[in-house]
Amino acid sequence: MNLNLRVWRQSNATDPGKLVDYPAPDISEHMSFLEMLDVVNERLIVKDEQPIAFDHDCREGICGMCSLMINGIAHGPEKGTTVCQLHMRHFKDGDTLVIEPWRARAFPVVRDLVVDRSSFDRIMQVGGFVSANTGNAPDGNAIPISKVEADLAMDAAACIGCGACVASCKNASAMLFVGAKVSQFLHLPQGHPERKSRASNMVAAMDHEGFGNCTNQYECEAVCPKEISVSVISELNREYTRATLTSGSD
């Protein structure tokens, strides 16, 4: 198949950048989207041009590195799929694909399609953990947890931190990410001792990083490759309010 790519090219963080057209002929429909970009890059290298920089790592939909906006949809048109797992058969011959980096003040562009998502790491550093004393690990099975709660914790823990929620949100809000990270601990007894400080610190860090505010449009849920439900946002709203009203008794 033959495609027309319009790719965001930006040589560094201060370069204003622009969209550049690249024809992509003879693309196999069995390639993943990233493999297609690899082919385009090899042809650019042969022509002595700079290859397109994009983030990728595991290429099996679990690391959260790949991060492309394809025709305005984070991770492209397939629901519940990272862009590395998106195959070219989902596009039509002759399609024009506009490929842009995640756009958010908290995700500055490093180069071309690569953005700096360390704002997520800083949010995690203030609460995305449980404190554990050293010593032998206690027997996990000794703590009774209902199947329902364990499943809810796992659903939230499926978040790979790719940032598609921020990228797709009309307001560049990180509520789905922070909600998932708070929720995964909230449903397990190990998360309870620090639940108040976790909610208040992570929300404060999120606001500090310059993410927008949730307006309940749920674009995040629609593009999330792990299909995390916006119920985690509601939980975060509840947790933050609860933590504010009862702090000091942690």
Partner: peptide
């Protein structure tokens, strides 16, 4: 809130899409 939202994305998408909003 709206001003915060505008500041949160200083550079907008050239091709913006909407799935379910």
């Amino acid at each position: 809130l709206t001003r915060g939202n505008q500041k949160a994305r200083p550079i907008t998408y050239a091709h913006s899409g909407t799935v379910q909003a």
